[in-house]
Amino acid sequence: MDSFSAALELLPRKYASALEPYAPYAPEELRLRVGRAPALLYEGREHRSAADKVEESDLKRILDKATGASLYNAAEAMRQGYYCTGALRIGICGKAVSGGIGFSGYSSLCIRLAHDCRGVCRETADKLMREGCPNTLIVSPPGGGKTTALRDLIRQLADGGVRVGVVDERGELSGGIFELGRCSDVISGLDKLSGALLLLRSMSPQIVAVDEISAPEDLRAIREISGCGVGILATVHARDEEDLRRRPAYQSLMKSGVFEQLLFIRQKNGIRSYEMRECP
């Protein structure tokens, strides 16, 4: 089942049937906001559907379906503001309680659909393999396709014979449905540092791949891995190099010289381009 069909399965029938005709556009996100018709993100912008307006009770039904009415088991994910299920990542907005581990009311959901874009990073993967897998940081704004690019890079490298250890903290990279290459070893359900250390001890990877480094613990994980003689593939939120340097958390990381290459993903009219640069 592709991720769009998986997303439609979560929705009440009245919305699923209204959104089904949009499948050929390969939407990247479904946006459900209380009091508005569901919208789909494709070709670089949001398109409002002709479905009924969303009510708060619909959002509750969708979350109950996604979590099997067990939202209490997703407290850690909720603190990050989203919940992952298979190839879907559900961002939640509403009235947060208990420091963000719960919501007493919902106002909008963003269902992000993971895509398996095979081959988008073939050239980058070839270059990395030629250069001995230097530490590479994938940079783009939110929704820019970092995880998709990382997934493809992992697959290309792992299929090329490189042992890639993947710390898939919330199961987003493999999504339960995506193939990550023949030489990949995936550990999920652990934070980046614990997962990486476990991989280093037990799987002797040549490269460790992690998605979305943002918290101080993630940066610590990167520093720990960098001293272990393995390559690193990671992703980060930023528009460009300037943006990256502006965030205090990343300044020290950039200064430390852990990353040798930066892969920028740019998007214009819904089309993505990839630019590799040496880290200054």
Binding site: E9, L11, P12, R13, K60, R61, D64, K65, A69
Partner: peptide, 11 residues
């Protein structure tokens, strides 16, 4: 009835 989640909320 848990199979009806999505159409109905748990509540």
């Amino acid at each position: 009835d848990m199979d009806e989640l999505g159409e109905k909320s748990f509540s």
